[in-house]
Simulated scan of single mutants.
Amino acid sequence: MNSHPPKNQNTKAPKNGPILVTGSAGFIGSHVTRRLLADGHAVVGLDNLNEYYDPKLKSDRLALFAKHQNYKHVTGDLADRDLIEAVFDKHQPKRVVHLAAQAGVRYAAENPHVYVSSNVTGTLHILEGCRQTGVEHLVFASTSSVYGANTKMPFSEHDSTEHPLTLYAATKKANEMMAHSYAHLYNIPSTGLRFFTVYGPWGRPDMALFLFTKAILAGEPIKVFNHGKHRRSFTYVDDIVEGIVRILKKPPKPTEDSTKTPKNQSTKTPDPASSRVAPYRIYNIGNEESVELMRYIEVLEKELGKKAKMEMLPLQPGDVPDTESDVTNLTEAINYSPQVNVEEGVANFVKWYRDYYKA
């Protein structure tokens, strides 16, 4: 697993020009960056190192690879148009992994303008940079939250996502539509990945596993929403990274068969997962095995050797009871198959947490 820095960092000559990774000091972005560097790629990392959560955690992630000979870092904000233009102009990236965003579903209710500035305006600046430099493939982060009010399980990319329940989800849905329009207008091969409940070492402090671990070790109660009646496609970060790295090598093409005929209609409608008019694809990326939240907590209790005190609470506004990922399309495209179950993944996180916080 990738919970610790590689002992022997790859020092091969970079392959095929630099890859721009936005959010390179973030949870998923730092794991992706380390993997790309280990594979011999040159990486330009962009991160604003903001204070949404402890900046030290971001700095420590960055320190794992900041001195790698094939890594160059830019500290700056996606919403800074001049900066993003300068990054593309100077480094001329061939491929882009766009992971930077204002994260957190619930934080959006308190700071909506931050989400639009980062997730919408910032993504526009990335798309413009891709257009100006003729990027060969843009892979960008979306989220399972776009499924919103959809209750059909498992969630499929071929289903409608017209009813997001949070502003965060709405900004990510906007990103998907913006990417399609740019793919069509400027022939920018673009792939969106809808992440499902990613967890693992170096995770964000506002995520459930992090919050639960901290509270249980301190003897404090954990907040269990919807009275624990949740199911989630918990996905270990290494499985996410593997999918990103593989799909980055496969820029999409327009698909002639990307229409479907609903049973109650006689005319064909566009398939949300692909496009006849643009090099564009959307994929779910997650674990097909959906796990009950209470089971997740049980695994954590076992690893910590301590029982949790639980404060049972109702469903939060904008939250969905269950998620379940259909990854059939991604499996067909890149032979995607998550390898890490929750027992192994939670154990890896707890080991990292104890090491990092001397807990």
Rank of each mutant, 00 (worst) to 15 (best):
H73R: 11
S325D: 00
T75E: 15
A179H: 04
T33D: 02
G29C: 08
E128A: 07
R295M: 09
A25P: 05
P279C: 09
V97P: 01
Y283T: 00
H227N: 14
T11I: 14
L36W: 12
K263Y: 12
G286K: 04
V291R: 04
K249I: 06
H180Q: 14
N335V: 04
K94Q: 13
G122A: 01
I222T: 04
T213A: 14
P262S: 05
I334S: 04
S258W: 09
R131V: 07
L165Y: 02
A215L: 07
E344G: 06
V198E: 02
Y182M: 05
E298S: 14
G345I: 02
G345V: 00
R35Y: 11
D322W: 13
T259M: 12
G122L: 05
S233G: 05
V327Q: 08
L209T: 11
E343V: 15
T259I: 11
A100Y: 02
D82W: 05
G286T: 03
R281M: 06
G26E: 08
D322F: 12
L211D: 12
L248M: 09
G228P: 08
L315F: 03
E344H: 10
K302V: 12
N2I: 11
K229H: 14
A86S: 15
P55N: 05
H73S: 11
A170F: 00
L304M: 06
K172I: 00
V224R: 10
N2L: 13
C130G: 04
G29P: 12
H180G: 08
K94V: 11
W202H: 13
A183T: 01
V97R: 00
T197R: 05
S233V: 03
H230I: 05
K351E: 14
Q92E: 11
P55K: 01
K56S: 12
N287F: 09
S274Y: 12
R34E: 15
E176P: 00
E136G: 07
T121V: 13
R61Q: 08
K7E: 14
E303Y: 09
I188G: 01
G148Q: 00
Q316L: 15
G345E: 09
T191H: 01
E288V: 06
V342W: 02
S160Y: 00
F155W: 04
V32R: 04
C130M: 02
T269C: 06
E301F: 07
A208M: 13
D319E: 15
E344K: 14
Q69T: 13
K263N: 10
G228K: 00
